[in-house]
Amino acid sequence: MIIAIASGKGGTGKSTVAVNLSLSLENVQLIDCDVEEPNSNLFLNLDLEKDEEVYLKIPKIDEENCTHCKRCAEFCEYNALAVLEDKVMVFEQLCHGCGLCSMVCPTNAITEKNRSLGVIEKSRDGIDFIRGVLNIGEAMSTPIIRRLKEKTDKKKTVILDVPPGTACPVIEAITGCDYCMLVTEPTPFGLYDLKIAVELCKKLKVRFGVIINRDGIGDEKTEEFCKKEDIDIILRIPYNRRIAELYSEGKPFIDEMPEWKTKLREVYRRIHEDIRK
């Protein structure tokens, strides 16, 4: 079973839930899909090693065979190629790596070369953990997430720590998951972004439930929304100074508050049953 932990709004507690849930269950694989800001391991302190580099295949022009016919540039939907009289320019940052230019070239003057987007790292020991890390200055994070998801271990309970927002990286991460936990906080910003995340789950046909974090800091509107829309609130984590302190230190709160281990297991058990129905 694959469970995604997502949120819409950033900083609502995705990594907190993902890490504490992973540590509460048996036979887990935790995948940090927030490749722009991968934070899960700050709470796990696992010894990591490089698993592989993630590349995008970008065009390599063989100027000797190129007739400068401009066909590649005409076909490229991303404006990543410009053909001058005696030279082809490749704008690497704009290329999505679709390979169409090499297909349309009449003289086979385009081959492909690898451009690094980031790396995938995995744990040496402890829990089964993998994460992607996007290179600094690199815009494209989805190919790394796509690769991370190919590494899911079907024999395990897979937990995905999803990036904030609702755009491409989130869509890539959530698609095909069995369940999505939407972590929110009971504030106007939290609620507005939760509504977008709910719509996204519906559109992607992923079952979901809501976790209200820092319960008590805001208003009742999130509860009212969930009730009206018949959305399951699967867990409420009250605002608690100690939980915030442990978070700031990078410590999973279940270590100090073992009662939460039981609660998280219970949430998982209910979701598991729900999905099997």
């Binding site: 996007l134 815009a139 994070s141 927002g165």
Partner: peptide, 11 residues
């Protein structure tokens, strides 16, 4: 702006 360091942030 938005969180992260990728596409929308660079834009």
């Amino acid at each position: 702006g938005s969180p992260g360091i990728g596409c929308p942030v660079i834009a």
